[in-house]
Design a protein around this nucleic acid. Sequence first.
DNA 1: CGTTGGGTTGATCGACCTCAATAAAAGTGG
DNA 2: CCACTTTTATTGAGGTCGATCAACCCAACG
Lengths: 256, 256
Amino acid sequence: MKSSLGSIRNEAAAGVPTAPVLTLCPNSNVTVDCATCRVRALSLCAALEPDELQELDRLASSIAVGAKERLFEQDQPSASVYNVTAGSIRLYKLLPDGRRQVVGFALPGDFLGLSMSERNAFSADALTPTTACKFSRQEYSNFLDAKPHLLRRLHSMASHELSLAQDQMVILGRRTAEERIAAFLIGLRNRWMRINGNQVHVPLPMTRQDIGDFLGLTVETVSRLMTRLAREKAIVIVPDGVRLLDVPRLERLAEI
Amino acid sequence: MKSSLGSIRNEAAAGVPTAPVLTLCPNSNVTVDCATCRVRALSLCAALEPDELQELDRLASSIAVGAKERLFEQDQPSASVYNVTAGSIRLYKLLPDGRRQVVGFALPGDFLGLSMSERNAFSADALTPTTACKFSRQEYSNFLDAKPHLLRRLHSMASHELSLAQDQMVILGRRTAEERIAAFLIGLRNRWMRINGNQVHVPLPMTRQDIGDFLGLTVETVSRLMTRLAREKAIVIVPDGVRLLDVPRLERLAEI
DNA sequence: CGTTGGGTTGATCGACCTCAATAAAAGTGG
DNA sequence: CCACTTTTATTGAGGTCGATCAACCCAACG
């Protein structure tokens, strides 16, 4: 057997898609209005002046995808880049034998395609109904060439992403299961805070399996430890999320 | 006890430096000559025209650091960025309790400071005598503003780094110890190949402890598995490195 | 109202860690 | 060049955290 790791059980084997690929979407190509965009301040577009925003407007199309639909797939040519405006997305890599590593979750304000590379480094499935601004990668790349300060912001977002990835390396390489869960909850809370403001309620649009595949743990371990944190009054498990009761305790565990 | 993970034993506790901090270096501020630089084709500078190279020449100073000296330290303000010209460097993060995660190894041609951020995200110790081109971060940043195609290349290098970090997340989250070692050796061979051309000999300037802290394993596990791979004729352990005998087998294990 | 996907809980197992001892290099000073 | 220390690597014996295997619960849904 493949030893300790993996998440083969609830997945189809060997790279077989588990979510329907995004086909034609009724809401595709809806007009975009950057001026009234609610996530603009959080997103890449914050780097732009009003007139530049109008230019970008013309390049964008709005898309909506239902829960469990796939936006794009690992190793496929990437035709588009996206700016998430609502919803949540799972980003993951599959090994040939079906083991899965979730490399991140995209939330409103996040940009997909930071690397502007020819092929997707990972797959992306919507976890909840999701909307995004969609751009042709080529057109966006040309736009970048004309707007160095936008490139600067793209690079700064990519750098931030790199820094998060390195933090995740510490979590995966050197932290206990309990610390991983705590770090995950605190990290997610901080991200929701930027979007919704300070909240004790942390929405968890992903399954336990997704969390496990993000943290290098099994579903069972995630479930057990969340239950334990709840029993110890550090959190309360509520439908579609958790409520953080003892943030200092969790932060101590996560020790960012 | 802290459970499974960590590398506290051979390290001083709680963030106490284990390597001397780089102070005054005899070879500092030696004149740089980009025109004859042997790693230019591999490095960021490859994006520059001859006249731009001369401009950069004037911003650069050459530094040399001995083995085990520290280039810079996690969380400290980052005054400089570096282009490694020779040697090898360990990049790592420390947890407050002394656990360590090596986030990468820098080799000739690598750029340190891709994120151009205010503070260092990790510490950097030379593993072997190392030389690098050193730039003021501020001056380099200004230079970038004037040269969008250089920024483009910086971003492309940062994207590549992000992609490597995500691959490392798969390794740390979902691979067995044996697979991690194989992936490490194959990955390092591929990097040396870009520098020295195709070689069966893979130099390992880092200790087993460093490898363990990179792969989320203990020294003992690294040693045991390297010995096993040697016993099974996949590699030969030689002074300061390994010789790869059965590359296909290792690649199958690493399954990139 | 059966079916299905997600979540929880228990019993057991095993990959890798921990602890311990020794061996082999690599400095270091006389 | 050789004692002596220090660092790094190897090997063995035993322990444990999280994985595996297996029920079971519950809500959603056609």
